Simulated scan of single mutants.
Amino acid sequence: MQTAWFSKPVVVSVGVTGSTRNLSNTQQAIELLTTHWRDAGSVKHQSALRACRRATSGEVSPDIAREAFVEAAREAHILVE
């Protein structure tokens, strides 16, 4: 497994206080998707998790994983745009 870096960080709002986090790679995204996700189990959540895992194994580009993560974050209302 390798760390797949996004071309541009994804900014999300997390936790009760809504603190922001800048996610720069698939490992950070996977950690958030598996531990602190509001809509865990949704189609977009599962798609983002799968894409991030595939990017860490080199099957897809990090930017494909980034886009899937952005869509899941938007659905969960945590994406800072």
Results as ranks from 00 to 15, higher is better:
S13D: 10
T56V: 14
E31H: 14
A55L: 06
T17Y: 13
A73Q: 07
E81T: 03
E67V: 02
I78N: 02
F69G: 00
R50G: 08
S13F: 10
H36P: 07
V12N: 01
S57V: 13
R53M: 14
T20V: 11
S7Q: 07
F6Q: 02
S13M: 13
R50V: 12
K8Q: 04
D39Q: 12
T35I: 07
S7A: 08
D39W: 09
R66Y: 00
E75H: 09
S19K: 08
V80I: 13
R74V: 08
I78Q: 01
V14A: 10
R53V: 14
Q27N: 13
C52D: 06
A48D: 04
F6K: 01
A40S: 13
L32D: 06
L32A: 09
K8M: 03
R21T: 11
P9D: 05
A68P: 01
A76W: 05
S57F: 12
V60P: 10
T3D: 08
S13R: 13
R38H: 10
R54L: 15
T56A: 12
G41S: 02
L23H: 04
E67S: 03
Q28E: 15
V10D: 02
C52K: 03
I64G: 07
P9T: 04
P9W: 01
R66V: 00
R53Q: 15
S61E: 07
R66S: 03
Q27E: 13
E31A: 13
K8L: 00
W5T: 12
P9R: 00
S47V: 08
V43C: 04
P62M: 07
E59L: 15
S47T: 11
G18A: 05
H45W: 07
W5M: 11
I64E: 15
V11G: 02
H45V: 05
T56L: 10
Q27P: 07
T26Q: 11
S42I: 05
H45L: 05
E31V: 13
I30W: 01
G18Y: 04
G15E: 03
R50Q: 13
K8H: 02
G58D: 12
V10K: 01
R21C: 12
V12P: 00
I64W: 13
L32H: 09
E71H: 04
